[in-house]
Structure formats: structure tokens, C-alpha cells
Nucleic acid binder design. Structure first.
Length: 991
RNA sequence: GCGGAUGUGGUGAAAUUGGUAGACACGCUAGACUUAGGAUCUAGUGCCGCGAGGCUUGGGGGUUCGAGUCCCUUCAUCCGCACCA
């Protein structure tokens, strides 16, 4: 073999490792550059081809910056705590630490194969006690802090306590949930428990009640995406909205700074926009409504206080704390039924489903703050308890959801904007003139908002307020595999551990499940108490805790005295280029910004944004394969007992049909199997199945009088996802699937097909659960890491998502071999010439230097690969093997294909690593042209090319063009109306 | 529902500031070399048309000498939505 990539890549990987080529130290003589990848969660499936996309791009950039003379920090580590390892532990009993260690080992092997320039001496793992010691330490800092709204930064909670002792909380400038006011005397009279409860309303991490998706059967809280159709994805158990005491992070204190800080960041507008929407700043008013015959009030936030006279009813969330209190006896039953129904629906469903309007009247009335009219109070699930105050003043004239609601329940829809037509729907127009609104009549919306707020403030019933959609982040997890929270309970009071007790290490437990009483797994740990015998917090931290500050740990990863030294922090500072997926827009990227701002407030970090520039690599989508499964139904006419239907489970005799059968079926209007077009074989199969299932049911349920039958339409055929590994193209290897132990339900399945079983193909997210993951290992085995690196970049623009398709990988591999052959003769002997490079050779080289440099700078990695290909093709055409040219070219290609570059660099007679060489200097003088080939257009359509010297004046160009015989042909005797000449660009003649 | 993207040949794509649409590859067709080819090389390849030529960047409209690029409108697909990380 001419280009022996296996030998070359193995050789240089060892060389780099032994020589610590990628080791990085502080070097004050050089400018720093910090390139960071979002670190991976090491899943059991290993690295798939989507991961390296971003890693390769950032590695190219890091290597490029190093060639450009920067001191580049480029570390890697692992987000090693997480749910999948815990799930696996629950299923197998294996400790998540063991699973995680095994996964890490595999990730490392895979990463090493690709030839990244990581400084592995800086690796971090969030599950390592030496690491999470500092995650816990940050938690304690947050616990000991509150947000001082006067200084507009975090401050020591002791300062707040001192203030309370002196003057109470009336004048306290602090962000918090404390609603009642107390004097210094009252504060000082409180016992410790009462004082601590009040401080919880100010601490930046605090205990409070939050709503969660509680699954009683699993004894745990579920994420939205673990819930499908209102039941748990695992096991199908019911899930309810439940209030639980949880740790939260007071990120809302930072809402405004998180919002304005975005302006300084070099991120895509899309991500910034997502964060702005997430923070959701809206300016409006908080209005209090009195409740008739009750002393409580309902607060609502509105962005349109000008519409106050358009309010004809109120809607509060079914979970609102006042619902049970104000509901009248007559309405009690209906309200309770509705609450149960609403609790069973996920927030997502409630938000998405606007077509089905539902709600229930509480029987209570609120008093309109200006008119005093009684307005009915309803509950409805389109109002979410967790958003705003959990209550809205309904203005059906101006809000479509309110309009739908009023329309359905026959509530009045007042007109409050002149000329408004609201017979068919609400009118949210903000341009009109207010009417039917007492003192607001005749005003424009903008002015009415101001006046309404003034009136509310004067009357003491409301005030102007800025609201944020952002909610405090729930921080407790009822899980095992996460950081323990360094809190213990002294007589029921949550108390911070001392820093000297960190790390609080994760204890051993007998099982990774919640206890029988529904307590988190840590409650199973023996002696989970402090030395004094106080119980320790049993919740753990969420996955995002460790990843909210890891970028800082890389700067000084082995420091035991502090999370990073000031020297390291001041030299490396924040991340200059952050590479990762856009899917973290509202999670990790917001939390990391929040912690950074906090640590900056406290003087621990010398910067207040973690990631200066960010590039979001697009997803590599996978190829999924599906087969069609026929669903059988039961003819219900013969059944009296509903329970039978619920309890019936069909046995393993699934029927699967290939694509052509499916299409034969759906393309006809046939709904019964006994009609034409369906093969006799399928008809027979279905009949047989009907009969055997009917017999089986009769045997199990003696009073079953019906039969299993096929009344089905094509919609009762479902798509079943099958692993791509058993499919060649679209043709399924039926035997392999049947024999796959992971898919035992296919063992007795019937497959109906002609010649070969054709599957349906779809492009979707590459994920283990979709069985469509492709690992990079076999690509590297067949083509080498350099080919993989070039190929992943060649696929298309980095930021766009694209399907994984290896068809064109040959072309990239062929390019590397062509590149190799530039340095070798026909017998694969190394052969270059020391002659002076020719003008043409220099032109090719410098054209390429410019293109490569410009494109890497603008993160257009795919076009660089094309530029290399063009360069090699052109040198090939010139039969060039000039050493001077090739030496420069080798450096140029090093960031993309470091192994082959290192090999050729050494063959050229060099001994130092190519990765340490200076980037070739572009010199414009080699590209100077004396003439330009002008495209000549008539009426904007290009007709012919004409080469003309660059020093011609516009007049001379026009003259030359008009005299040309092609021009005469297209002019066809007419006189041009206009001639447009753009020097060095185009000529356009308008006829 | 809200929010964010993306639509260009048979395929992945290029066109950086409004200036030659389809670079570079894959695939395909024909040929050369070869015992052989899933190696290598040469030529061709957006669509329609014998040709002159016409058409072409999801659809429709607009601005402009000139639009893939700017504006309006519409359709389709993908992604995220607070406990997956």
C-alpha cells in the first residue's frame, strides 16, 4: 500500500504522547487562547459520529491558533454524573461508578484514535470527589449569599442578618420571596427556626415547595421527556403534578444581568434570542383583585394594564392556592374533578393544546378594582401555576385564548378599542384608541398603559412591574448518581456544612432505588449523618451542577486548596471559543452564565461571562429503519365486560409486512383484508391470526363472546423501529433480527415480503434509543483518522444539521492518497526537488494559504477541504514536487490531517513536530493579475467571456466590448440603453 | 401553542459585500490500462431541445441594469420548550 495510514497514525499518536506535544503551561510571553468543547456525557453506546464533528472543528481551530503563535488551552473531560448510569445500576445492580469508569475508558480510546490535541493532564470528571468538592463548595457560597439589589450583585447573607437586627426588612434591598414585613424587634424576638425560615426567602440557593412530575409507582420525579401520553415512559405508570420541598437556585435574581450580558457575547443571534425568550422580560403591572366575601386577594400580572376595563372574568390555575378556599359548595365537586384532570396533564400538553378549551367556574367572584363590578373566577388548565402569579385577568376582546374561553362558556366580551371587531375572534391590535374605559377613554394604548398604572398606584391596588418568565431552577434530584448536597438538618433546620468537611462523598447504598417510603436513594445509606448525629440531605444535585463551572477547573485541575489559582484564572481567563450543540441554549448555557456571574460577584472569577464566542455545530442525523406491524383489534360488539378489553394482551405472534405490501394496501381504498390487491398469503395469515387469537381469548375469558377481527384501516398499521445494523441499505436481514437477543419479541414474528424485506427509511436524530447510532471506529479502521477528520468537515457547513452518509468518504480518502503521491514517485519512493519554485507553483500555494486562513477564521471548515483538493489537483497538473512548496502545504494541512502531515514533515527532513511550526505567511504579490476575464451580459444574462487588461478605463472597456463580434450578434442592430461596467467584476449591457 | 432553524442537480454541497448559479466531491455514462477490479487514469454529466436556444436556487409577488443573496407572502421539513445531558 502506498499511503499506509494505519502504521502512520499509530506511530505519531505514540510520538505525541511520549513527547507530551500537547502539554500546555502558562506562558506570559504569549497571548493565550482557550478553545473548549462542551464535554460529553459518557454513555454506554460510546462516541458516535456526531460527537467528533464539533471536536474536530475545535481541534482544527486550536491547532490553527497554535500555528499562529498563540498559547492554546484545549482540554477535555467528562460530565460523568447522570441518569443513564443510574438506570443501568437499577436494572443490573452494578455501581454507577463502575459503569461510568468503563464508559470513560471506551470514550478515551475512541477520542485518542482521532488524534485530538487535548492536554490530557488537565482532564476533569464531575464525579470525581476532587472535582465535586468544589461543586459543593460553590453550593455553600450560594447558600451563604443573597442578592443585594442596591449593589446589584451577590452579597454575604451575614450583611442581611445584620440589617435585620438593626432595622428589620422594610428597607432591605434584597431579591427574594419574603412577603411579610418585620421590624428589628420582631426579628430579634424570633427563634432560630423562624429566622432561618425567613433567610430561605433570600438565599441564592434555598429550600421551597415546587411542582414536580411525581410518579408514585416509581417513587421518583420524572423529566418531561420521560413522560409519554401522561404516563411514565418506563412502565406506563400514572404521573401527577405534585408539590415537593426542593432546593432551588435563585437564578431570577440575575435575570436582568443575564439578559443584558447577552449583548457582549459573540454567539449566534438564534441562541441569544432563545435565551432572551427564556428570560422573557415583560413590562407591565401587578394588579390586586379583591374577592367578594373573602379577605384574600388575587394578584395578576398584565402587560396590558390599559385593558383593565375589558376584564370580564378571571382565570386562575387549577393548582392555585386559593382555589379550594374560594370554591362554593355547589361548585366543589366539579372543581375537584377538574383539578384531578388537570393534574394528570403535563405542562407541555396544557400549553400546546389550545383547541380544546376547558375550565370550571369556582362560584366565587372578584371585584373589579375600578368599577366594583363582580367578575366570575374560573379555573382553567391553560393558566399555569408556575408562571407569573398563576392567575390572569381575562380580557377576551384582546386575547385569543381568553376570547375562546369566553366564547365557549358564554361570558361577556367587552369592546374596549374603538372600531374593534370581535365577533369572530380577539383583536390584539395595539394601535387603537381606548373606549368604554372610564378615565382611559380616548387615549392611545401606549398612553393608556402609563395612565392606568398611575391610577392603580394612586388607588393602592396595583403598581408598575417588570416580570420575567424565567423561573428559579429546581436543584434537588431524588437520585443516587449525583453530587451530595452539603447540608444537614439540625433540629429540622437546614444547616450548611463547614468547608473543611468537603468533599462530602457519595455513600454506598444497597440499591439505587428510592426507599419504600419514597425517600431518595441516599436515605438507604447507613449512618448518613454528621458526627453529631444530624441527618444529612438525601437529595443530590442535578446534572447541570458540575457542568456550570467546569471551564474554570481546566485552568488548574489538580489544585487542592482552591478551585483554581488566581494566577491560572488571570492568565487563561474565560473561554475564547466554545464549541457545542445548540440544544443546551436554555439549560447549561444559562446556568453556567449564572454561576459565572455569581462567582465574579464574590471575587472568585476575574470575568463575568464564561464563553466569549460560541459556535454550535449542527446535529448529524441518523438513518433510521422501520418495518410495518399490523395491529389487531377486537370486535367489541360481542363484549359486555369492558375490563376484558383493557386486560387483553396479544401474544408474541406479531405480523410485519414490508414496504411494498404496505403500499399496495394504502394505495388502494381497501380497508378489509378480504378484498383485492392484498396477497392471498397476507389474507390467509390475517384470517389465521384472527381465529387463533379469538380461541385464545375465549379460553382465558369464558364470557368473551366477541372475536378478534380485522376491521382495521391502514391507520392501524404502526411503524416499528428496528436497528440499522440488521439492514443493508433498505433490505432487512430477517434472520439476524429474529436472532438478536435484544429484540426477543421478533423471535416468533411473521415477516411477509417479496424477494427481500424492504424497510421504510427516515432521517432523525442519532440516538441509542432509535438504534441508528454509527460509531467512528470502523471508519477509522477502514480509512484512518485523517480521512475521518477531513470527511466530517467535508460533509457541509459546521452549523447545519446533516444526515450521516458515508458514500462520499472515498473521495476524501482518495484526496489524501493523491496528496501522498505528490511526495512520491511511481514506486512509492519519497521524491521531492529542491529547485526554486515556479511562478505557477507559488500562485497555487499562496492562493491556498489565503483561502485556508480566511475560511478557518470564519469557521467555514468544509470549504477548506475543497481548497486543499483544488490545490493538490493543480500541483498534480503542474507535475510539481517542489520541496519549498510542499513543506508549506504540509503545515497548512496539519490542523486537518495531523498524522499524515507529521509523517511527511519528517520525511522532508525535519525533526521537530509539525504541530509546533509557524503558519505559512500569505504574500499577495504572487497573486497579482494584469487582466480579468469579464463575463459580458445582455439584460442580465451572461452571453460570453472577454479577457481585458485591468488598467483599461471604463470607456475603453465599453469600446472593446461593443466592438466585439459576439456583442454585435446580441445587439442585433439595436443601440444599448445603458452599459454598466463594474471594474474587475462584470459588464452588463441593457438593450 | 411558543421559540429557533433549514429548503440550490440523482446525492453532500459552493457562490464571503447584490455581479459568470452548481466550485469541490459522491454517483452515473463512455473509454484506456489490466488475468481481474470495489485500484488507477482520460472524457462527459442541472433540466428541456437535433440545433439555435430556452428554463432553473420550495411556491407566488416585489425592488434593481442585475437577486440563491434584499423586501412581502405562502408552503414544507427539522430541532428545543425548565428533572436527558
Amino acid at each position: 500500500m502506498d499511503y499506509n495510514f494505519r502504521a502512520i497514525e499509530a506511530k505519531w499518536r505514540t510520538f505525541w504522547q511520549e513527547n507530551k506535544t500537547y502539554k500546555t503551561e502558562i506562558d506570559n510571553s504569549k497571548e493565550k487562547f482557550y478553545v473548549l468543547d462542551m464535554f460529553p456525557y459518557p454513555s454506554g453506546a460510546g462516541l458516535h459520529v456526531g460527537h467528533p464533528l464539533g471536536y474536530i472543528a475545535s481541534d482544527i481551530y486550536a491547532r490553527y491558533k497554535k500555528h499562529k503563535g498563540f498559547n492554546v488551552l484545549h482540554p477535555m473531560g467528562y460530565d460523568a454524573f447522570g441518569l443513564p448510569a443510574e438506570q443501568y445500576a437499577i436494572q443490573t445492580g452494578q455501581h454507577p461508578a463502575i459503569t461510568t469508569a468503563a464508559n470513560l475508558k471506551r470514550y478515551r480510546e475512541q477520542l485518542d484514535q482521532i488524534g485530538f490535541s487535548y492536554d490530557w493532564d488537565r482532564e476533569v470528571r464531575t464525579s470525581d470527589p476532587n472535582y465535586y468538592k468544589w461543586t459543593q463548595w460553590i453550593f455553600l457560597q450560594l447558600f451563604h449569599s443573597y442578592y443585594n439589589t442596591e449593589l446589584d450583585k451577590a452579597d454575604d447573607i451575614k450583611n442581611l442578618v445584620a440589617l435585620f437586627e438593626k432595622e428589620g426588612n422594610a428597607a432591605a434591598k434584597a431579591h427574594g420571596d419574603q412577603e411579610t414585613v418585620f421590624t428589628a424587634a420582631e426579628w430579634n424576638a424570633m427563634n432560630e427556626k423562624e429566622q432561618q425560615a425567613i433567610l430561605m426567602n433570600y438565599r441564592l440557593t434555598y429550600l421551597s415547595d415546587s411542582f414536580v412530575n411525581w410518579c408514585p409507582a416509581l417513587g421518583t420525579v420524572l423529566a418531561n421527556d420521560e413522560i409519554k401520553d401522561g404516563v411514565s415512559e418506563r412502565g406506563g405508570h400514572p404521573v401527577e403534578r405534585k408539590k415537593m420541598q426542593q432546593w432551588s437556585m435563585r437564578i431570577t435574581a440575575y435575570a436582568e444581568r443575564l439578559l443584558t450580558g447577552l449583548d457582549q457575547l459573540d454567539w449566534t443571534d438564534a441562541i441569544k434570542e432563545i435565551q432572551r425568550n427564556w428570560i422573557g422580560k415583560s413590562v407591565g403591572a401587578l394588579v390586586s383583585f379583591e374577592i367578594d366575601q373573602h379577605k384574600e386577594k388575587i394578584d395578576v400580572f398584565t402587560t396590558r394594564p390599559d385593558t383593565i376595563f375589558g376584564v370580564s372574568f378571571m382565570v386562575i390555575a387549577p393548582e392555585h392556592e386559593l382555589v379550594n378556599h374560594i370554591t362554593t359548595a355547589e361548585q366543589k365537586k366539579a372543581i375537584e374533578a377538574y383539578q384531578v384532570k388537570a393534574a394528570a396533564r403535563s405542562e407541555r400538553e396544557r400549553m400546546a393544546d389550545v383547541k380544546q378549551v376547558s375550565g370550571e367556574f369556582t362560584g366565587a367572584y372578584a371585584k373589579h378594582p375600578f368599577s366594583g363590578n363582580l367578575i366570575p373566577i374560573w379555573i382553567a388548565d391553560y393558566v399555569l401555576a408556575s408562571y407569573g402569579t398563576g392567575a390572569v385577568m381575562a380580557v377576551p376582546g384582546g386575547d385569543q385564548r381568553d376570547w375562546d374561553f369566553a366564547h365557549k362558556f358564554g361570558l361577556t366580551i367587552p369592546v374596549i378599542i374603538e372600531g374593534q371587531n370581535i365577533s369572530e375572534g380577539a383583536d390584539a391590535n395595539k394601535e387603537g384608541i381606548i373606549c368604554n374605559s372610564d378615565f382611559l377613554n380616548g387615549l392611545k394604548v401606549k398612553d393608556a398603559i402609563v395612565k392606568a398604572i398611575e391610577a392603580m398606584e394612586a388607588k393602592g391596588i396595583g403598581k408598575g412591574k417588570t416580570n420575567y418568565r424565567l423561573r428559579d431552577a429546581v436543584f434537588s434530584r431524588q437520585r443516587y448518581w449525583g453530587e451530595p448536597i452539603p447540608i444537614y438538618y439540625k433540629n429540622g433546620i437546614a444547616t450548611a456544612m463547614d468547608e473543611s468537611e468537603l468533599p462530602l462523598e457519595l455513600p454506598e447504598v444497597d440499591k439505587y432505588l428510592p426507599t419504600e417510603d419514597g425517600e431518595p436513594p441516599l436515605a438507604r445509606a447507613e449512618n448518613w449523618k454528621t458526627a453529631e448525629g444530624h441527618p444529612i440531605e438525601t437529595n443530590t444535585m442535578p446534572g447541570w451542577a458540575g457542568s456550570s463551572w467546569y471551564f474554570a477547573r481546566y485552568l488548574d485541575p489538580n489544585n487542592t486548596g482552591e478551585f483554581a489559582s488566581q494566577d491560572a484564572l488571570n492568565y487563561w481567563k474565560n473561554v475564547d471559543l466554545y464549541m457545542g450543540g445548540a440544544e443546551h441554549a436554555t439549560g447549561h448555557l444559562l446556568y453556567a452564565r449564572f454561576w459565572t456571574k455569581f462567582l465574579n460577584d464574590k471575587g472568585f472569577l476575574p470575568f463575568d461571562e464564561p464563553f466569549k464566542k460560541m459556535i454550535n455545530q449542527g446535529m448529524i442525523t441518523g438513518n433510521s429503519r422501520f418495518i410495518y406491524r399490523i395491529l389487531f383489534s377486537i370486535d367489541q360488539s360481542g363484549i359486555n365486560d369492558n375490563d376484558i378489553i383493557k386486560n387483553i394482551e396479544f401474544d408474541g405472534k406479531l405480523i410485519h409486512i414490508s414496504k411494498e405490501y404496505y403500499e399496495a394496501w394504502t394505495n388502494s381504498s381497501i380497508t378489509k383484508p378480504d378484498e383485492k390487491n392484498l396477497s392471498e398469503q397476507l389474507k390467509l395469515l390475517i384470517k389465521e391470526h384472527e381465529a387463533s387469537e379469538t380461541e385464545r381469548l375465549k379460553a382465558i375469558y369464558p364470557n368473551f363472546k366477541g372475536k378478534v377481527s380485522y376491521w382495521a384501516t391502514p391507520s392501524s398499521i404502526i411503524k416499528a423501529q428496528i436497528p440499522i445494523k440488521h439492514v443493508d441499505g433498505y433490505s432487512l436481514n430477517v434472520e439476524a433480527l429474529k436472532n438478536d437477543k435484544e429484540f426477543s419479541n421478533y423471535m416468533n414474528s411473521t415477516f411477509l415480503f417479496q424477494n427481500q424485506f424492504i424497510c421504510l427509511g427516515e432521517i432523525e436524530k442519532m440516538s441509542k434509543s432509535k438504534f441508528n447510532v454509527v460509531n467512528p471506529d470502523n471508519i477509522i479502521e477502514s480509512y484512518g483518522a485523517d480521512t475521518l477528520r477531513l470527511f466530517e468537515m467535508f460533509l457541509g457547513p459546521l452549523e447545519q444539521s446533516k444526515p450521516w452518509d458515508t458514500d462520499s468518504i472515498e473521495g476524501v480518502h482518495r484526496f489524501l492518497r493523491k496528496f501522498w503521491r505528490l511526495f512520491h514517485d511511481g514506486e512509492n519512493n519519497f521524491s521531492v526537488t529542491n529547485a526554486e519554485p515556479t511562478k505557477e507553483e507559488l500562485k497555487v500555494l499562496h492562493k491556498t494559504i489565503k483561502k485556508v486562513e480566511d475560511d478557518i477564521e470564519r469557521f467555514s471548515f468544509n470549504t477548506v477541504v475543497s481548497a486543499f483538493m483544488i490545490c493538490v489537483n493543480e500541483l498534480n497538473d503542474l507535475k510539481s514536487n517542489n520541496k519549498t512548496i510542499l513543506e508549506q502545504l504540509v503545515i497548512l494541512i496539519t490542523p486537518y490531517a495531523p498524522h499524515i502531515a507529521e509523517e511527511l514533515w519528517h520525511k522532508l527532513g525535519n525533526t521537530e513536530s509539525v504541530t509546533l511550526q509557524a503558519f505559512p505567511k500569505f504574500e499577495a504579490k504572487y497573486l497579482v493579475e494584469s487582466s480579468h476575464k469579464y463575463p459580458v451580459s445582455f439584460n442580465g444574462k451572461m452571453r460570453f467571456m472577454l479577457e481585458m487588461p485591468l488598467d483599461l478605463s471604463k470607456e475603453e472597456i465599453e469600446k472593446t466590448v461593443m466592438e466585439h463580434e459576439e456583442s454585435q450578434k446580441w445587439l442585433d442592430g439595436k443601440t444599448p440603453k445603458k452599459v454598466i461596467i463594474v471594474p474587475k467584476k462584470i459588464v452588463n449591457i441593457v438593450i
